[in-house]
Amino acid sequence: MRLLIVEDEKRLALSLARGLTAEGFAVDVVHDGLEGLHRAGTGTYDLVVLDIMLPGMNGYRVCSALRAAGHEVPILMLTAKDGEYDEAEGLDTGADDYLTKPFSYVVLLARVRALLRRRGPGASPVLRLGRLAVDRGARRVERDGTAVQLTAKEFAVLEQLAVRPGEVVSKAEILEHVWDFAYEGDPNIVEVYISALRRKLGPGLIETVRGAGYRLVSGG
């Protein structure tokens, strides 16, 4: 999953990015509202963490502009303000959740995961395909009832396939959602992780569709 953090407190933004990256998310960071609106408007993000007090354009306006343009990306608002009227204003502009600074990173991570589970297709916390179960909340994978140990990145790649079972997911789509905007390495890194998943999960689950991408199937 690919996240965008729009936060002008650079130390906080870096801390959040490091923590979320360690959890297997691809994370991009910007520090002003106008750039945040531009990035979020590309439609490549699965969730936006959006501060309210931003230079250029405040978070309320960014959120409102995204919703007016038809973007349904989940938005978690952050602010140093408190009080029910501030929270109501954030939610009224289209935010999905609200967190007041200072906050616990553990709480933020739980809110992020909850919002991702609620969104669109594959919203169930546990995705099942034949003998495979992918628990998005616990970040746990089982095949035939036996736990399979995956790295954070391996889980992220598998999740992209599991939310679209039976569909072909291109290498570009996996790169877009699992690696961040700054990634400039070899796109064949996806093949490395697919090979690792096949080795750990066993044969018959991940098909290669030549020239198109990969597909998770239930025949394995």
Rank of each mutant, 00 (worst) to 15 (best):
V141K: 01
K171T: 14
E207K: 04
E159S: 00
L66N: 03
L161E: 02
E9V: 06
R119S: 02
G202D: 01
P203A: 11
D96S: 14
T208S: 12
I206G: 00
V106H: 12
A182P: 05
V112P: 04
V126Y: 01
G43W: 01
T146H: 13
P121K: 08
A69V: 09
L205E: 04
L20H: 10
L129K: 00
V106M: 04
A110Y: 00
N58W: 01
V169A: 06
F103K: 10
D92H: 07
R198F: 02
A26R: 10
L47W: 03
R118N: 14
E89Q: 15
L91N: 09
P55K: 15
E167S: 13
E87F: 07
H177Y: 12
A156S: 12
R11A: 14
R164S: 14
A182G: 15
L109R: 12
A152M: 08
F103W: 01
G120K: 00
L4Y: 02
R113G: 07
R198C: 09
R128C: 00
I189V: 12
T208P: 07
A182T: 09
P125A: 12
A196G: 07
S170W: 01
L20T: 04
L115T: 04
G19F: 07
A133K: 15
A13V: 03
F25V: 08
E87N: 03
L116M: 13
V73S: 05
R198E: 06
A162I: 01
H177A: 08
G211W: 07
N58T: 06
L158F: 08
L109V: 11
V169D: 01
A172R: 15
R2N: 15
E9Q: 06
S64D: 14
D97I: 11
G19Y: 06
D28S: 13
V107R: 13
L16C: 13
I194W: 06
V6L: 11
L47R: 03
L197I: 06
D8L: 04
D82E: 12
G43H: 08
L37G: 05
Q160E: 12
K153E: 08
D51P: 00
E207S: 02
C63Y: 03
F103Y: 10
F25G: 02
A26K: 10
L50G: 08
V29C: 11
G33L: 09
M57E: 11
E35Y: 03
L161F: 03
T93D: 05
V217E: 11
H71I: 10
M53K: 08
R61P: 06
V157N: 01
D46M: 10
L201I: 06
P187Q: 09
G94R: 09
L158N: 04
D28L: 14
T208F: 01
T42E: 01
P203N: 09
D82A: 15
A40E: 03
T100W: 11
V157R: 02
R117I: 05
E154Y: 00
D82I: 10
I189N: 08
G59Y: 05
E173C: 07
P125G: 10
L12P: 11
Y214I: 08
R67S: 05
V30W: 05
G83R: 09
E89C: 12
T100V: 14
E184I: 07
R164C: 05
L109P: 10
A138R: 12
G145M: 05
A172P: 00
